[in-house]
Amino acid sequence: EVHFESHGEEQAMRVVKMLKKRNLTVEVKVENNKWIITAK
């Protein structure tokens, strides 16, 4: 499981795309203006 924190939507979306290319399940949450990305 991979956790990634991002402060910007643009950066977060880039990471999500990259993770999805690896056929991982990606969950995105926004907490306290931080984008929290979890990949399994």
Rank of each mutant, 00 (worst) to 15 (best):
E1K: 10
E1F: 13
V2A: 05
H3D: 03
H3M: 11
H3A: 07
H3G: 03
H3V: 14
H3N: 06
F4W: 11
F4T: 02
F4P: 04
F4K: 03
F4I: 10
F4G: 04
E5N: 05
E5H: 09
E5M: 08
S6K: 08
S6R: 13
S6H: 06
S6C: 15
H7W: 14
H7T: 11
H7Y: 14
G8H: 15
G8L: 14
G8A: 13
G8E: 14
G8V: 14
E9W: 15
E9I: 12
E10Q: 10
E10G: 06
Q11T: 08
Q11R: 07
Q11D: 13
Q11H: 12
Q11S: 09
Q11M: 10
A12G: 03
A12D: 01
M13H: 05
M13P: 01
M13W: 07
R14W: 12
R14T: 06
R14C: 15
R14F: 09
R14L: 11
V15S: 01
V15G: 00
V15F: 09
V15Q: 02
V15L: 14
V15H: 03
V15W: 11
V16R: 01
V16M: 07
K17F: 12
K17G: 08
K17Q: 12
K17T: 09
K17S: 11
M18N: 06
M18E: 08
M18W: 14
M18L: 11
L19R: 01
L19P: 01
L19A: 01
L19G: 02
L19Q: 01
L19V: 01
K20I: 12
K20G: 05
K20E: 12
K20R: 12
K20Y: 07
K21L: 12
K21V: 05
R22K: 11
R22F: 15
R22I: 11
R22H: 14
N23C: 15
N23Q: 08
L24R: 03
L24V: 05
L24T: 03
L24I: 07
T25H: 13
T25G: 03
T25W: 13
T25D: 09
T25V: 12
T25S: 10
V26E: 00
E27S: 12
E27C: 13
E27V: 12
E27I: 13
E27L: 08
V28F: 06
V28H: 00
K29Y: 10
K29N: 05
V30Q: 08
V30H: 11
V30C: 05
V30M: 11
V30K: 11
E31V: 13
E31S: 06
N32T: 04
N32E: 08
N32I: 04
N32V: 04
N32W: 05
N32Y: 07
N32M: 05
N33P: 01
N33W: 05
N33I: 03
N33S: 06
N33A: 04
N33V: 03
N33D: 11
K34P: 00
K34Y: 06
K34L: 13
K34G: 04
K34D: 01
W35C: 03
W35G: 00
W35I: 06
W35Q: 00
W35R: 00
I36K: 03
I36S: 03
I36H: 04
I37F: 01
I37K: 00
I37R: 00
T38I: 13
A39G: 08
A39F: 12
A39E: 00
K40Y: 14
